[in-house]
Design a protein around this nucleic acid. Structure first.
Lengths: 340, 340
DNA sequence: TTTTAAATTACAATCGTTTGTGTAGTTAAT
DNA sequence: ATTAACTACACAAACGATTGTAATTTAAAA
């Protein structure tokens, strides 16, 4: 294990002091041009790489930011990470990604790890099972900037970048109504996490706004592709079959479409289907799925920009903001046209 | 910015030396039970978190491993990361994820960052545009363990975990042949990256094995969903229409299916379609897509296990191995049954 | 009681940087 | 010629932990 080159090695080689080498490499004006040049050349040839560990320790600052997400392989979150990466990278920061696996205990461990790594700041989307925020409060207490995104706590203990789920769902259902649908079922989650609550809220508000009776019987606890494949047949064979299904996510919508077609029900003529999230799947089903774009890449960008801002302006630590990311309705083939 | 608690703070509080506190927290036998207990209690109450930065610097070792992938939001890679995370996490390591964006320059930068962060080891899947491996050679020269996965260099400059693309493609095409297909087109990539080359190799070998003439005219440069939607109509309207299409990935296969159905061609009766990668999409198209499972989660696990092994046994650094991950044919509805 | 061993804890160096301060040597101003 | 002001560098102390060694206390053995 050949150790990597250090400032000391360079200093020894030129019979200079370590501090001179350090300053030379950072182009300090007190070092002569000549010395700087020869040191720079030597460093380049011998591939000197500054030791961030030592540097961070000494400077009492960190060039790494940490992110906690429920599940890395979830396409939505991976797009958020891509957005985060895109700005982190341009600011000479490094990203440490941790995954909570939707478990509170794991999430707590993630926080410990990031705190022990003395990250400059933390971004987090909380897990479904998190019912206690002490670990995040500890982050705040330690003076480490924290920004929540997508899945945020209701109480604003830190900055939040929230996707406007309620409005997104409203837009979706409103559109279904305008295309002539009268009986719109909701495939969603009973979960108490905010996004589930808000999407349902939007669904209900749209119905109310357009004077459509809200029928509890066509609200189903179904938020996965598999579950949709299980229950859709029953739903569509029921006496008062819905003429539209609004699903909490695209996977669920895809499951609905899959079954509906098997039953010979034509989409969107006999059944309109709308998803949420504009997932990867929405353009590849047949018909493609009308959905709500949540702009995850943009969300990631905005969240980390806020974080970097807080890192660079520590005096603003008590200035807690909430940013709302607006969604957009993406029309595809699984819904009909607006009837005038 | 309230600084975090340090060993010194604890030492001061009990009027002990820093070294005693350090040893006490690591349960060193030379420290009395009594002292250990009171220190442990105090540390817990005041939420002492060891400073990994300082610890790593002093111990001249690192508890972080770095990974370089072409694109985070690619589902295949995100599943690999999930696999990596699953073992990293159980070994008290931390993961730093970097993204090369399929660009050599960015990839070089990733290497620099990881090296500067003095990671314990690096895992990498090389970018499509990488035509020079100097940066990876530098990793090796620095004595930092390196394991390639999926997209590996042809020359074994470090450990590799390779997915058996050639065999996977062979299995797929063999199956198509056994179901009675006589004219199997290939939708693939002209790219010079190994996975493209190997999948095509497997395709050709299967044809040869079963005495089917290899026809250059039905090998298409098409490896995306969009491209497939563009060219499939022409392909299927050609005079000698293929009775099967083997696509280099599932997105492409999905595009084929999408168009074929529009043309009223029944799948799999008139056209069998087979994808590769067992992507997320394969179960949601109609019909669902027969595909090759590459076991990305498993691949990630194996690669990082090898890396940890090399980290823990530095004396084996010249013992370069290549591990082959076998693929599996997943039968779904887009292909017919074997005819006897 | 003296010697020796064992049990605790303190001291100090170190990891690789950064940074405040000190000090030669040179040049310019008085 | 004397002082002042630079220039270009060296010295040394940090950052927070780890670890070999020394020192102290206590207990056991002679």
């Amino acid at each position: 294990m050949k150790a990597q080159l250090t400032l000391k090695d360079i200093a020894l080689h030129f019979n200079l002091s370590v501090s001179t080498v350090s300053r030379a490499l950072r182009d300090d004006p007190t070092i002569s041009r000549e010395t700087k040049d020869k040191i720079a050349e030597y460093a380049k040839i011998h591939k000197y790489k500054p030791n961030f560990i030592a540097s961070n320790l000494r400077k009492q600052e960190s060039n790494v930011i940490g992110i906690i997400i429920p599940e890395i392989s979830n396409h939505f979150f991976s797009l958020i990470i891509a957005g985060v990466e895109s700005v982190v990278d341009n600011n000479n920061y490094t990203l440490i990604i941790t995954q909570s696996d939707e478990r509170l205990q794991k999430e707590i461990k993630c926080v410990q790890t990031l705190l022990s790594s003395r990250v400059a700041g933390i971004m987090a989307s909380i897990s479904k099972t998190t019912d206690n925020l002490d670990h995040f409060k500890e982050v705040v207490d330690n003076g480490v900037p924290l920004v929540f995104f997508d899945r945020c706590p209701v109480v604003p203990i830190a900055d939040r970048v929230i996707i406007n789920d309620e409005e997104g769902a409203f837009m979706a259902v409103e559109y279904l109504i305008k295309t002539g649908c009268k009986r719109i079922a909701y495939f969603g989650s009973h979960s108490s996490i905010e996004i589930a609550i808000n999407r349902k809220k939007g669904y209900i508000r749209a119905l109310e706004t357009y004077g459509i009776a809200f029928d509890k019987k066509i609200i189903y606890d179904c938020d996965t592709n598999e579950k949709a494949k299980e229950i859709t047949a029953d739903v569509l064979n029921s006496r008062k079959r819905p003429d539209a299904i609004f699903a909490i996510n695209d996977n669920t919508a895809a499951g609905v479409i899959y079954i509906a077609k098997r039953l010979g029900i034509s989409i969107p003529d006999e059944l309109a289907v709308c998803g949420f999230g504009d997932g990867y799947i929405s353009t590849n089903t047949d018909p493609s799925i009308t959905s709500i774009d949540q702009f995850p890449f943009f969300t990631g960008k905005k969240a980390v920009e806020r974080l970097l801002y807080k890192i660079k302006n520590p005096e603003l630590k008590n200035d807690i903001s909430t940013m709302i990311i607006d969604t957009s309705l993406i029309l595809r083939a699984s819904t009909g046209n607006i009837v005038l």
